[in-house]
């Protein structure tokens, strides 16, 4: 029972959604199932939040590792959740939760935005470091990769034109910006398409296996 019902649910929902593409009468069901999915997705957000609280609460109670920082997480979570659920700063309950002047907007603009963007900005430094340490022309394939990367790096900035802009128009094939554009529209498109076709087939096969109940790994083991 623990496995049969979930497999049936997956099969029914998957089949209905596939049918909704081909049969107009199943279209409404398709829409409804999509809406159900959206609503359950919100509960997944709650599950994530709940799990976060649980993990950090356990850390604080057991005084494990960086437990003092877990207090920061818990306080930040509690304040943001309260501000958001009660729409602090909002004049109207129907207004957006991030409307002008709300606490959520302030928290987003001044805490989430700088933290999130700086976390990703750090990658610029690591990319530079990796370029120095790991990007080696060890063999023919790696050299091709390196040359393509060079052309793109130069061609996507004004430097490419500065270096090769003197080449006459009739031989503009040799101008780096043109070459960069051509790489993107030619070989890159071909390579990405080859990958896309493979991935597309993989997704289709995987979806079929799930709908037909042949793949049940997502259910985990019976001991879970």
């Amino acid at each position: 029972m623990k496995r049969l019902i979930p497999v049936l649910i997956t099969s029914i929902v998957g089949t209905v959604l596939v049918f909704s593409v081909f049969f107009p009468m199943a279209e409404t069901w398709g829409e409804d199932f999509s809406l159900f999915f959206d609503i359950i997705a919100v509960f997944a957000f709650f599950l994530g939040g709940g799990n976060l609280v649980r993990v950090h609460l356990i850390k604080v109670l057991n005084k494990k590792g960086d437990w003092k920082f877990s207090i920061v997480t818990l306080i930040a979570f509690a304040i943001t959740l309260t501000a958001g659920l009660f729409k602090f700063g909002s004049v109207d309950i129907a207004a957006s939760v991030t409307a002008e002047g709300t606490w959520m907007q302030t928290i987003f603009n001044n805490i989430i935005a700088p933290l999130s963007s700086t976390m990703y900005a750090l990658l610029a430094f690591f990319v530079a470091s990796a370029s120095y340490r790991a990007f080696r022309a060890k063999n023919r394939e790696a050299t091709i990769l390196l040359i393509a990367a060079f052309i793109i790096l130069l061609g996507r900035t004004p430097l490419g034109m500065f270096m090769t802009g003197w080449i006459p128009e009739w031989f503009s094939i040799a101008q780096i910006p043109n070459l960069a554009v051509w790489i993107m529209n030619g070989p890159n498109l071909a390579g990405q398409r080859a990958i896309l076709i493979g991935v597309g087939l993989g997704v289709v096969a995987m979806s079929l296996r799930l709908i037909l109940g042949m793949d049940r790994t997502y259910l985990g083991s019976d001991h879970d």
Binding site: E31, D38, I39, A99
Partner: peptide, 28 residues
Amino acid sequence: LGFKAGGVGVLNVIITDFRKMYATDEHG
């Protein structure tokens, strides 16, 4: 219209009916 959770679930609805997904705009 603002945000709705669900990603492709949202797109699969608005391709046939906006009103089913968005009862109101962002301001209610």
